[in-house]
Every structure is written in structure tokens, then in C-alpha cells.
Simulated scan of single mutants.
Amino acid sequence: MSVEMFEAVIFDWDGTLANTKKIIVMAFQRALNEIDCKISNSFIERLIGIGSIETFREILKFKNVRFDKSLLEFLVRKKVQFSIELNGDITLFAGSRELLESLEGRVKMGLASMNNRDFIDFMLRKFDLSNIFDSVITANEIINAKPHPEIFQKCAKQLYVIPEKCVVFEDSVFGIQAAKQARMSCIAVLTGVYNTNEVKNKFPDIVVNSLEEKQKILNFIFHL
């Protein structure tokens, strides 16, 4: 029997591999300014992880603003545009690149982000990561947002790995829920907006403060 307990790892992007919170919030705010809608930064932060369309939907419902599909699509386009324009302030979290390089060639690697395809492709080019993932799934390729497991299920299918042999890296409670509903193991990373208790309440398999805890992560993945 192989010592490699798992066959694939699937990473979230925002808040897990990359420090994008500030830019995401700014991009949402600029998009909302286009329709003169005001909301607190903290309201947006607590929705990070469910995708742009669902975030705008929740904001507009909360603000009692009438909307339709075309308005939501307009806001998403603006948010993606502003995110790319503001990309200079986005960095990879410490330990991200080192962990990816340690895993490359040892397991299949996927990226499953509720951000949009144009933004994710731009980010992967920016950080020279376009060739490291065997599968990249974004909000554009799915119907159901996290915490629905669809995005992870689709990624695993593209990787040709059964869910039970996949490990998901997530920072949001929505992502952890999605991973567990997909019957995958989950490593929760405390680099997002959620505190330790909020994360643990969603029952990840292990919790790490950051991806710099490489040995703990590798021990779990490879059953060392």
C-alpha cells in the first residue's frame, strides 16, 4: 500500500493562497458605487467565499435594492475589472509557493475558486503559477456556489480522483462546508476573515495558522 494517503490536493485562492481581502473589498465597493449603493466593508468580508454573484445578491437584498440578472452580471463585470486594476497590492501568503512546489509531482493539484475566470487566470499569470495546477475551476464553470460542493466535485472529476482521496485547502467557513459535503478531507487555514472557533465549528480535519506549517501539512497529506 502506498504511503501517499491522498491522490489530489485542491486549493482555494482568495484568503488561502493569496492575500486578496483588501482588494476584493475595494473592488466590491467600487462596483457598488456604480449604482450608488453603500455597504460596510465588514458586511462584504463576511461573504467572501460564496462568489461574486451571490455576494452582490445578498448585499442588494439587504439594502432592499431591486435587481435582476443583468444588474448582477454588470456588477460582477465591474468587480472583476476593478480587481485586476488593483492587483498590484495582491501578494501570495508566506509559504504558499513553497508548499505548492513541495506538492508538485507528488499529487495531482487543483484550484477551485469562487472568483471569476478572468481574474483567476490573470492571477496565475501574475504569479507564474499557470502550469502548476492540473485543473482550475472558477465561478464561471459552476451553477451552485459554496457551500454547495459542486466546485470541488467538478475539480475532482477533472483530476480523475475520487472525493475521498482529495484534500481541500480552505480559509472560509463556506469552503470548509463545501469540502466536507463533497466527502473530501479539509485543511483549514486561518488566513481568512474567520476566527479559530468559527472554522473549527465546520469540522475541518486539521487547522493550521498558515501555509508556512508545511511539515504538519505534508504529514497529513502523505500520512507520515
Rank of each mutant, 00 (worst) to 15 (best):
D14Y: 03
D89T: 06
V168N: 04
N64G: 11
I90T: 13
D118A: 12
M5W: 01
L100V: 05
V80L: 05
E101C: 06
I90G: 02
Q177C: 10
F74E: 15
L32N: 09
C186A: 12
T191C: 03
K61Q: 14
P147A: 12
K69G: 06
P204V: 02
L111K: 09
K78M: 10
R66A: 14
K157D: 15
A8Q: 08
K79A: 10
E98L: 13
E170V: 01
F174K: 06
I221H: 01
A178W: 10
L218T: 03
D118R: 12
L159S: 06
S113T: 11
R183F: 08
A182Y: 03
Q153E: 13
H148S: 07
D36P: 00
V76G: 05
K21V: 13
L47S: 05
R125D: 14
E98C: 08
N64Y: 09
F56A: 11
L100H: 04
N144T: 06
N116R: 15
I142E: 05
S113F: 08
N195Q: 06
L129D: 05
I162E: 15
A27Y: 02
K126D: 07
P149F: 11
L86E: 15
A27L: 01
K180H: 14
G175F: 06
K214D: 07
K61F: 02
V208G: 03
L218S: 10
N195V: 10
E104N: 13
E104G: 01
K78C: 07
I176S: 10
I221R: 00
D205K: 02
